[in-house]
Protein backbone atom coordinates (compact mmCIF):
# COMPACT_ATOMS: atom_id res chain seq x y z
CA UNK A 1 0.00 0.00 0.00
CA UNK A 2 1.43 3.34 -1.02
CA UNK A 3 0.77 6.74 0.54
CA UNK A 4 -1.54 7.88 -2.28
CA UNK A 5 -3.78 4.86 -1.90
CA UNK A 6 -3.93 5.32 1.88
CA UNK A 7 -4.59 9.05 1.55
CA UNK A 8 -7.30 8.23 -0.98
CA UNK A 9 -9.03 5.82 1.38
CA UNK A 10 -8.77 8.28 4.25
CA UNK A 11 -10.16 11.10 2.17
CA UNK A 12 -13.04 8.84 1.09
CA UNK A 13 -13.74 8.07 4.74
CA UNK A 14 -13.53 11.75 5.69
CA UNK A 15 -16.08 12.60 2.97
CA UNK A 16 -18.53 9.95 4.19
CA UNK A 17 -18.16 11.03 7.82
CA UNK A 18 -18.48 14.75 7.03
CA UNK A 19 -21.80 14.02 5.34
CA UNK A 20 -23.10 11.83 8.16
CA UNK A 21 -22.09 14.38 10.80
CA UNK A 22 -23.55 17.28 8.84
CA UNK A 23 -26.92 15.55 8.62
CA UNK A 24 -26.80 14.36 12.23
CA UNK A 25 -25.69 17.65 13.81
CA UNK A 26 -28.05 19.88 11.82
CA UNK A 27 -30.86 17.30 11.98
CA UNK A 28 -31.34 18.05 8.31
CA UNK A 29 -30.43 16.67 4.92
CA UNK A 30 -31.33 19.83 3.01
CA UNK A 31 -29.25 20.19 -0.15
CA UNK A 32 -28.24 16.53 -0.16
CA UNK A 33 -29.23 14.34 -3.09
CA UNK A 34 -30.81 11.19 -1.67
CA UNK A 35 -30.49 9.68 -5.14
CA UNK A 36 -26.69 10.03 -5.14
CA UNK A 37 -26.63 8.48 -1.68
CA UNK A 38 -28.70 5.49 -2.84
CA UNK A 39 -26.32 5.08 -5.78
CA UNK A 40 -23.26 5.16 -3.50
CA UNK A 41 -24.84 2.63 -1.15
CA UNK A 42 -25.53 0.38 -4.18
CA UNK A 43 -21.91 0.85 -5.27
CA UNK A 44 -20.59 -0.41 -1.93
CA UNK A 45 -23.03 -3.29 -1.62
CA UNK A 46 -22.36 -4.62 -5.13
CA UNK A 47 -18.59 -4.12 -4.91
CA UNK A 48 -17.95 -5.57 -1.49
CA UNK A 49 -19.77 -8.88 -1.91
CA UNK A 50 -16.26 -10.34 -1.88
CA UNK A 51 -16.28 -9.78 1.89
CA UNK A 52 -17.89 -13.22 1.92
CA UNK A 53 -15.56 -14.91 -0.54
CA UNK A 54 -12.04 -13.61 0.02
CA UNK A 55 -10.02 -12.24 2.90
CA UNK A 56 -7.40 -9.68 1.90
CA UNK A 57 -6.52 -7.95 5.17
CA UNK A 58 -8.09 -6.70 8.34
CA UNK A 59 -7.72 -3.16 6.97
CA UNK A 60 -9.49 -4.10 3.75
CA UNK A 61 -12.42 -5.86 5.42
CA UNK A 62 -12.88 -3.20 8.12
CA UNK A 63 -12.92 -0.34 5.62
CA UNK A 64 -15.42 -2.19 3.44
CA UNK A 65 -17.72 -2.76 6.40
CA UNK A 66 -17.38 0.89 7.50
CA UNK A 67 -18.13 2.21 4.00
CA UNK A 68 -21.17 -0.03 3.59
CA UNK A 69 -22.56 0.76 7.07
CA UNK A 70 -22.04 4.52 6.75
CA UNK A 71 -23.59 4.69 3.29
CA UNK A 72 -26.65 2.72 4.38
CA UNK A 73 -26.92 4.88 7.52
CA UNK A 74 -26.83 8.00 5.31
CA UNK A 75 -29.63 6.67 3.11
CA UNK A 76 -31.62 5.87 6.25
CA UNK A 77 -31.16 9.40 7.61
CA UNK A 78 -32.20 11.01 4.31
CA UNK A 79 -35.22 8.83 3.52
CA UNK A 80 -36.47 7.95 7.00
CA UNK A 81 -35.17 9.81 10.04
CA UNK A 82 -34.91 13.29 8.51
CA UNK A 83 -37.19 12.74 5.53
CA UNK A 84 -39.11 15.95 6.32
CA UNK A 85 -35.99 17.98 5.55
CA UNK A 86 -35.18 16.13 2.31
CA UNK A 87 -35.39 18.45 -0.66
CA UNK A 88 -36.96 15.96 -3.08
CA UNK A 89 -38.34 18.67 -5.37
CA UNK A 90 -34.82 19.59 -6.39
CA UNK A 91 -33.50 16.02 -6.49
CA UNK A 92 -34.94 15.28 -9.90
CA UNK A 93 -32.08 13.66 -11.80
CA UNK A 94 -33.35 10.63 -13.73
CA UNK A 95 -31.31 7.84 -12.15
CA UNK A 96 -32.40 5.27 -14.75
CA UNK A 97 -30.35 7.22 -17.30
CA UNK A 98 -27.29 6.21 -15.30
CA UNK A 99 -28.18 2.76 -14.00
CA UNK A 100 -29.40 1.27 -17.29
CA UNK A 101 -26.38 2.20 -19.46
CA UNK A 102 -23.98 1.35 -16.63
CA UNK A 103 -25.69 -2.02 -16.16
CA UNK A 104 -25.47 -2.73 -19.89
CA UNK A 105 -21.84 -1.69 -20.09
CA UNK A 106 -20.85 -3.87 -17.15
CA UNK A 107 -22.21 -6.90 -19.04
CA UNK A 108 -20.30 -5.93 -22.18
CA UNK A 109 -16.95 -4.70 -20.83
CA UNK A 110 -15.64 -6.69 -17.86
CA UNK A 111 -12.65 -8.80 -16.84
CA UNK A 112 -14.67 -12.00 -16.59
CA UNK A 113 -18.25 -12.90 -17.41
CA UNK A 114 -19.20 -14.11 -13.94
CA UNK A 115 -21.86 -12.72 -11.57
CA UNK A 116 -19.35 -11.42 -9.00
CA UNK A 117 -17.15 -9.82 -11.62
CA UNK A 118 -20.08 -8.22 -13.44
CA UNK A 119 -21.37 -6.79 -10.15
CA UNK A 120 -17.89 -5.47 -9.32
CA UNK A 121 -17.66 -3.87 -12.78
CA UNK A 122 -21.17 -2.43 -12.36
CA UNK A 123 -20.11 -0.85 -9.06
CA UNK A 124 -16.98 0.69 -10.60
CA UNK A 125 -18.92 2.20 -13.52
CA UNK A 126 -21.77 3.32 -11.27
CA UNK A 127 -19.43 4.99 -8.80
CA UNK A 128 -17.90 7.07 -11.56
CA UNK A 129 -21.25 8.77 -12.26
CA UNK A 130 -23.05 8.41 -8.91
CA UNK A 131 -22.35 12.02 -7.95
CA UNK A 132 -24.25 13.41 -10.95
CA UNK A 133 -27.64 13.67 -9.15
CA UNK A 134 -25.90 15.69 -6.42
CA UNK A 135 -24.15 18.00 -8.90
CA UNK A 136 -27.42 18.33 -10.83
CA UNK A 137 -29.21 19.32 -7.64
CA UNK A 138 -26.62 22.01 -6.90
CA UNK A 139 -26.89 23.33 -10.43
CA UNK A 140 -30.69 23.49 -10.04
CA UNK A 141 -30.68 25.34 -6.73
CA UNK A 142 -27.60 27.35 -7.75
CA UNK A 143 -25.91 26.95 -4.37
CA UNK A 144 -24.52 24.54 -1.82
CA UNK A 145 -23.85 24.76 1.88
CA UNK A 146 -20.15 25.07 2.64
CA UNK A 147 -20.09 21.79 4.57
CA UNK A 148 -21.62 20.03 1.52
CA UNK A 149 -18.80 21.43 -0.62
CA UNK A 150 -16.22 20.02 1.82
CA UNK A 151 -17.93 16.65 1.43
CA UNK A 152 -17.72 16.91 -2.36
CA UNK A 153 -14.11 18.03 -2.21
CA UNK A 154 -12.97 14.99 -0.22
CA UNK A 155 -15.07 12.68 -2.38
CA UNK A 156 -13.42 14.05 -5.53
CA UNK A 157 -9.98 14.10 -3.96
CA UNK A 158 -10.29 10.40 -3.13
CA UNK A 159 -10.52 9.23 -6.74
CA UNK A 160 -7.89 11.75 -7.80
CA UNK A 161 -5.48 10.23 -5.27
CA UNK A 162 -6.38 6.76 -6.53
CA UNK A 163 -5.32 7.87 -10.02
CA UNK A 164 -1.87 8.74 -8.66
CA UNK A 165 -1.87 5.42 -6.79
CA UNK A 166 -2.54 3.59 -10.06
CA UNK A 167 0.34 5.38 -11.81
CA UNK A 168 2.54 4.43 -8.83
CA UNK A 169 1.42 0.82 -8.93
CA UNK A 170 1.95 0.58 -12.67
CA UNK A 171 5.55 1.80 -12.35
CA UNK A 172 6.53 -0.09 -9.22
CA UNK A 173 4.38 -3.23 -9.34
CA UNK A 174 3.43 -3.50 -13.00
CA UNK A 175 -0.15 -3.57 -11.78
CA UNK A 176 -2.98 -1.95 -13.66
CA UNK A 177 -6.70 -2.45 -13.97
CA UNK A 178 -7.94 -0.71 -17.07
CA UNK A 179 -11.61 -0.76 -16.04
CA UNK A 180 -10.88 0.93 -12.72
CA UNK A 181 -8.49 3.43 -14.31
CA UNK A 182 -10.82 4.58 -17.09
CA UNK A 183 -13.80 4.81 -14.73
CA UNK A 184 -11.65 6.58 -12.14
CA UNK A 185 -10.57 9.10 -14.76
CA UNK A 186 -14.17 9.80 -15.74
CA UNK A 187 -15.10 10.11 -12.08
CA UNK A 188 -12.31 12.58 -11.34
CA UNK A 189 -13.03 14.67 -14.44
CA UNK A 190 -16.65 15.10 -13.30
CA UNK A 191 -15.35 16.91 -10.22
CA UNK A 192 -13.04 19.30 -12.06
CA UNK A 193 -15.60 22.04 -12.52
CA UNK A 194 -16.53 21.73 -8.88
CA UNK A 195 -12.85 21.79 -7.77
CA UNK A 196 -12.44 25.08 -9.61
CA UNK A 197 -15.38 26.64 -7.77
CA UNK A 198 -14.21 25.14 -4.48
CA UNK A 199 -10.76 26.71 -4.77
CA UNK A 200 -11.88 30.06 -6.16
CA UNK A 201 -14.87 30.53 -3.84
CA UNK A 202 -15.18 28.23 -0.83
CA UNK A 203 -11.51 28.35 0.18
CA UNK A 204 -11.70 32.15 0.04
CA UNK A 205 -14.51 32.08 2.56
CA UNK A 206 -17.37 32.58 0.14
CA UNK A 207 -20.44 30.40 -0.20
CA UNK A 208 -20.63 28.27 -3.30
CA UNK A 209 -23.26 29.86 -5.49
CA UNK A 210 -23.57 29.60 -9.21
CA UNK A 211 -24.27 32.58 -11.46
CA UNK A 212 -27.97 32.69 -12.33
Amino acid sequence: MNIFRLAGDVSHLVAIIILLLKIWKTRSCAGISGKSQILFASVFVTRYLDLFTIFISLYNSSMKIIYISCSIATVYLVYFKFKATYDGNHDTFRVEFLVVPVGGLSFLVNHDFSPMEILWTFSIYLESVAILPQLFMISKTGEAETITTHYLFFLGLYRGLYLINWIWRYYFEGFFDLIAIVAGLVQTVLYCDFFYLYVTKVLKGKKLSLPA
Binding site: R5, H12, I56, S57, N60, W120, D177
Partner: peptide, 10 residues
Protein backbone atom coordinates in the same frame (compact mmCIF):
# COMPACT_ATOMS: atom_id res chain seq x y z
CA UNK B 1 -5.19 -13.61 -15.72
CA UNK B 2 -6.76 -14.84 -12.49
CA UNK B 3 -4.52 -12.46 -10.58
CA UNK B 4 -6.34 -9.62 -12.29
CA UNK B 5 -9.48 -10.66 -10.41
CA UNK B 6 -8.03 -10.23 -6.92
CA UNK B 7 -9.33 -6.88 -5.71
CA UNK B 8 -7.13 -5.43 -3.01
CA UNK B 9 -8.37 -1.87 -3.49
CA UNK B 10 -11.50 -0.36 -2.04
Amino acid sequence: DNEQLVKDEL
